[in-house]
Simulated assay, not measured.
Amino acid sequence: MPQQIKIFLTGGNGMVGKNILEYNTNPNITILAPNRKEINLEDYNAVFNYIKQQKPDFIIHAAGLVGGIQDNIARPVDFLIKNLDIGRNLIMAAKSNRVKNFINLSSSCMYPREAKNPLQEDLILKGELEPTNEGYALAKIVTTRLCEYINKEDDYFQYKTVIPCNLYGKYDKFSPEHSHMVPAVIKKIDEAKLNGNSTITIWGNGEARREFMYAKDLADFIFYAVSNFTAMPQNINVGLGYDFTINHYYKTIAKVIGFEGQFEHDLSKPVGMYQKLIDDTKLKAFGWTAKTDLEQGLQLTYSYYKTEVKHD
Results as ranks from 00 to 15, higher is better:
Asn19Met: 08
Leu125Trp: 07
Lys160Thr: 08
Leu283Pro: 06
Thr199Asn: 09
Asn28Thr: 10
Leu167Gln: 09
Met1Trp: 01
Gly17Trp: 05
Glu295His: 07
Pro176Phe: 08
Glu130Phe: 14
Thr143His: 04
Ile81His: 11
Lys18Gly: 02
Phe229Gln: 00
His61Gly: 09
Gly87Lys: 09
Asn197Val: 05
Ile51Ala: 06
Gly169Ala: 04
Phe223Gln: 00
Leu300Ile: 11
Asp122Gly: 01
Glu153Pro: 01
Ser179Val: 01
Asp266Ala: 07
Val256Asp: 08
Asp43Met: 06
Val77Ala: 09
Thr161Phe: 02
Ile69Asp: 12
Ile163Asp: 01
Asp279Asn: 15
Ile69Lys: 12
Leu65Met: 10
Lys193Cys: 07
Tyr250Gln: 01
Lys306Thr: 13
His61Leu: 05
Tyr168Ala: 05
Ala63Glu: 03
Asn235Cys: 11
Trp288Thr: 00
Glu148Met: 12
Ala63Ser: 13
Val142Gln: 14
Lys160Ile: 09
Leu105Asn: 08
Asn166Val: 04
Lys173Pro: 00
Ile59Pro: 02
Ala46Asn: 13
Ile186Arg: 03
Asn45Ile: 03
Ala33Phe: 00
Leu90Phe: 04
Lys152Asp: 15
Ile69Arg: 14
Phe223Glu: 04
His311Thr: 15
Ala46Gln: 15
Glu114Ala: 14
Glu128Arg: 15
Tyr249Asn: 11
Val142Trp: 04
Glu38His: 03
Ile59Ser: 03
Asp279Trp: 09
Ile236Thr: 01
Tyr50Ile: 02
Thr307Ala: 01
Ala208Pro: 00
Met92Leu: 15
Tyr250Asn: 08
Glu295Met: 09
Glu264Asp: 05
Arg145His: 11
Met15Leu: 13
Tyr302Asn: 00
Phe79Ser: 04
Lys160Ser: 03
Phe259Thr: 00
Ala225Pro: 02
Gln158Pro: 03
Asn97Gln: 05
Asn101His: 14
Phe48Tyr: 15
Lys188Pro: 06
Phe221Ser: 00
Asn205Phe: 08
Glu134Gly: 11
Gln3Gly: 12
Ile5Tyr: 03
Gly68Ser: 10
Gly239Asp: 04
Leu194Asp: 14
Asp293Pro: 06
Lys276Ser: 13
Asp293Gln: 02
Asn24Cys: 06
Ala74Arg: 13
Tyr111Glu: 06
Ser96Cys: 09
Glu153Lys: 11
Gln3Ser: 08
Gly241Glu: 15
Ile60Ala: 08
Lys170Met: 07
Asn45Gly: 07
Gly287Phe: 05
Gly239Pro: 02
Lys95Ile: 06
Tyr304Gln: 00
Ile202Thr: 04
Asp217Cys: 14
Pro118Arg: 14
Pro164Tyr: 04
Gly11Ala: 02
Tyr274Trp: 11
Ile150Val: 12
Cys147Arg: 03
Leu129Met: 12
Tyr224Cys: 10
Val142Pro: 02
Ile278Pro: 05
Lys170Trp: 00
Ala63Asp: 02
Asn101Thr: 08
Ile124Asp: 01
Leu167Thr: 06
Glu295Val: 01
Lys116Phe: 09
Leu123Gly: 09
Ser96Phe: 12
Ile278Asn: 13
Ala225Lys: 11
Gln53Ala: 11
Ile51His: 03
Glu128Ile: 14
Glu121Phe: 13
Tyr50Val: 00
Asn237Met: 10
Thr201Tyr: 04
Leu129Tyr: 07
Leu84Gln: 11
